[in-house]
Amino acid sequence: MRIETEQQLAEAIRSAQGPLAIVGGGTRPVGQGAGARLEVGISGITLYEPGALTLVAGAGTPLSEIEEVIAAQGQRLPFEPARWGTVLGASGESTIGGVVAANVSGPRRVQAGACRDSLIGVRFVDGAGETVKNGGRVMKNVTGYDLAKLMAGSWGTLGVLSEVSFKLLPAAVAQATIVLDLSAEAAQPALSAALGSPFDVSGAGWLPGIGAIVRIEGLAQSVAYRAERLRDLLAVFGPARIETHRSAELWRCLRDLVPFEGKSGDLWRLSVKPSEAPDILRRIGGEVMLDWGGGLIWALVPEGTDLRARAAPYTGHATCLRGQSPAFEPEPAPVATLTRALRARFDPRGILNPGRMG
């Protein structure tokens, strides 16, 4: 069933006789449980105030539409949302509601924060079919319980988003990338040094066939100066060069996992303590990419690999985006208790994406 309005959404949930599989653009089929398909197509930008750096849109609005509109005004979503559809073998087009539901945050998270940090308001329908509004359309209106942050990353298990509100940022005029020819295991100290520098780094990762990459953004003259200074600082880790013409393409490749496209195997995402990354990489093998200064490891391993067991011990969590292993990390007992209580409150019948997150 495709839903076009919030009223239809509320009625569909109220009248549901069994589990519902909540779908946005269908590009992130991670841990999807059984149930009647409920496709959210509530689309359209309902408010855009470039001067206030504020945007409000229906949850089913294509991400590409939003990015095109705000780019025309020299603005961007701060958290650099990724497209995983191609690498996950999924059709469809990423929607802004799906981005929020999965809290999708790209390389710029190290500077601008995650998706939830730019989210200032939501409307959603809970498991009882009741419409809930939280937050506002400007930062100062975000008061009381911050349900917007709770909805980000809940994967449709607490409510179905109908509208989202964001704070935007001006787009960078220029960018440059410092590239170091380092192995993945050797890259983390250099990435940490870059992030700890005073040069306002907006990305720090590692790409196969390229090496360690560090991004600087801003006004052209400032970018040129900071990139040169940072290159000199990182020279202690090995020869470093500055890329300008290919810079944007390098970060798109990391953001959208382009090196893994068309390759078989299980795809994992490990969010870990950056200092643990080198040891984890030595244990897991396979093909990898790094983001967030080594705090995010993408791994492509043979089918059936239990990467949680292979990577242990680690501080953080591992998510199987493609494969037969359970998608989400088992929660510690205190967290699991809290999760059950939240679901009982927001979805008393247990019909919203049951089993998706355990």
Results as ranks from 00 to 15, higher is better:
residue 280 I to G: 13
residue 315 T to R: 14
residue 229 R to G: 01
residue 339 T to A: 14
residue 139 M to V: 15
residue 224 A to S: 14
residue 286 G to S: 07
residue 83 R to S: 10
residue 134 N to H: 13
residue 164 V to Y: 03
residue 293 G to Q: 08
residue 70 I to R: 09
residue 275 S to D: 03
residue 179 V to S: 05
residue 269 R to N: 05
residue 97 G to Q: 05
residue 284 I to Q: 12
residue 89 G to H: 03
residue 144 G to Y: 10
residue 295 G to C: 09
residue 69 V to S: 11
residue 204 A to G: 05
residue 210 I to S: 01
residue 18 G to A: 12
residue 144 G to F: 03
residue 232 D to G: 11
residue 323 G to A: 11
residue 147 L to H: 02
residue 259 P to H: 08
residue 121 G to F: 02
residue 224 A to V: 04
residue 173 V to M: 08
residue 1 M to S: 14
residue 338 L to W: 14
residue 265 G to C: 07
residue 100 V to Q: 08
residue 310 R to A: 13
residue 312 A to R: 04
residue 133 K to Y: 00
residue 181 D to G: 08
residue 168 L to G: 13
residue 176 A to W: 06
residue 26 G to C: 04
residue 310 R to N: 01
residue 353 N to Y: 10
residue 162 S to R: 14
residue 298 W to F: 11
residue 153 G to P: 07
residue 271 S to I: 09
residue 346 F to P: 07
residue 351 I to P: 02
residue 90 A to G: 01
residue 180 L to T: 01
residue 209 G to S: 09
residue 7 Q to E: 12
residue 7 Q to A: 13
residue 297 I to V: 15
residue 155 W to M: 15
residue 294 G to I: 07
residue 254 L to N: 14
residue 69 V to W: 00
residue 3 I to A: 02
residue 61 T to V: 06
residue 148 A to F: 12
residue 4 E to Q: 11
residue 110 V to W: 06
residue 140 K to R: 15
residue 223 V to I: 12
residue 16 A to G: 12
residue 282 R to Y: 08
residue 206 W to D: 02
residue 226 R to Q: 10
residue 251 W to L: 10
residue 127 G to A: 11
residue 332 P to S: 00
residue 149 K to S: 06
residue 112 A to Q: 04
residue 133 K to C: 04
residue 174 A to R: 15
residue 35 G to N: 12
residue 260 F to C: 06
residue 140 K to C: 10
residue 262 G to T: 07
residue 334 P to H: 02
residue 326 P to I: 04
